[in-house]
Each structure stands twice: as structure tokens, then as C-alpha cells.
Computed example of a mutant assay.
Amino acid sequence: MTSSSETTKTHYICQTYVTTKAGRNGVEGLKIEKQLQYTSAAQARERAEREARADGCAGADAYEVEEDLNSGEVGPPNFLARIGNVPEFDDF
């Protein structure tokens, strides 16, 4: 995490996904497998690239979010990398 000002904090996240078994409708889905936090955008992006190549990983996102330290609210993600099979932004 890096402070961008005294009232906000930037979080850099690598999030990986695995495929879920098809349900009654026969459609496979995705679920979050790991959420890893880093101190820089480059670290999160590099980890997403490595994780996406791993066996069993459907895909990976690297993103940053701004947290308002006064309210605890977190803004929308700013994607740094989206690799492989990842959910649509609306599903995020």
C-alpha cells in the first residue's frame, strides 16, 4: 500500500480466478481463488502474469483501488492487467 495523500491510500491487488463446475444450466463460472496485496503496481501486475500461467488458474487481474481513510470507502478498480478468463467489469 502506498499513501497518495493523507486522506487516501492506494491498494495494489492481484486477484486470481478458477473455473467452477457447470451447474444445472451447463454453464461454467468463475470464482476468486486468491487475493494478494502488493506495495506497487508493477509487483501486482507481475504476479498476475505469473499466476495466469499456473496450472488450474483460469485468469488473473491486477488492479489498484483508492481507499478513503476517513470513511473506509473504496473506489472502483483501475485495472492494470486482465489476463486469461476474467469476469466482466460489471461482475466485479
Results as ranks from 00 to 15, higher is better:
Phe92Ala: 02
Leu36His: 06
Gly56Arg: 07
Gly75Cys: 08
Leu80Val: 03
Ser3Met: 12
Arg24Val: 13
Asp90Met: 05
Leu80Cys: 07
Ala52Asn: 02
Gln15Ile: 02
Gly72Ser: 14
Val74Arg: 12
Gln15Cys: 14
Leu30Tyr: 04
Ser71Ala: 02
Asp61Cys: 08
Glu51Leu: 07
Lys21Gly: 15
Ser40Pro: 11
Ser3Pro: 05
Glu88Arg: 12
Gly23Ala: 13
Arg50His: 04
Thr10Lys: 14
Gly23Cys: 05
Glu49Val: 04
Val18Ala: 03
Thr10Leu: 15
Gln43Asn: 06
Val74Ile: 15
Gln35Trp: 01
Arg47Thr: 07
Tyr12Thr: 07
Phe89Ser: 02
Ile83His: 06
Ser40Met: 11
Pro77Cys: 02
Ala60Thr: 06
Gln43Val: 04
Glu33Met: 06
Ala62Phe: 00
Asp90Thr: 09
Glu66Phe: 00
Gly23His: 06
Ser40Tyr: 12
Gly26Cys: 06
Asn78Tyr: 05
Leu30Ala: 08
Lys34Trp: 09
His11Thr: 09
Thr10Tyr: 02
Asp90Phe: 03
Gln35Leu: 14
Phe89Lys: 06
Gln37Thr: 15
Phe92Lys: 01
Glu33Cys: 03
Gly72Leu: 15
Asn78Asp: 05
Glu33Ala: 12
Gly75Met: 11
Asp91Tyr: 09
Arg82Lys: 15
Thr16Gln: 10
Lys34Phe: 11
Asp68Lys: 03
Ala41Thr: 01
Asp90Trp: 08
Ser40Arg: 06
Thr8Leu: 07
Gln43Met: 13
Val86His: 05
Gly72Trp: 14
Leu36Gly: 01
Thr19Ser: 13
Lys21Trp: 07
Pro77Glu: 02
Val18Leu: 03
Leu36Gln: 09
Arg24His: 11
Arg82Trp: 08
Leu36Trp: 03
His11Met: 12
Asp55Gln: 11
Gly75Asn: 15
Lys21His: 09
Lys34Pro: 00
Asn25Ser: 09
Ser3Cys: 05
Val65Tyr: 04
Ala48Lys: 00
Thr2Lys: 13
Asn25Ile: 10
Pro76Tyr: 14
Asp68Asn: 09
Thr2Arg: 11
Met1Trp: 00
Gly72Val: 14
Gly29Ile: 10
Lys9Tyr: 02
Gly72Asp: 14
Asn85Leu: 04
Ala41Ser: 11
Phe89Trp: 10
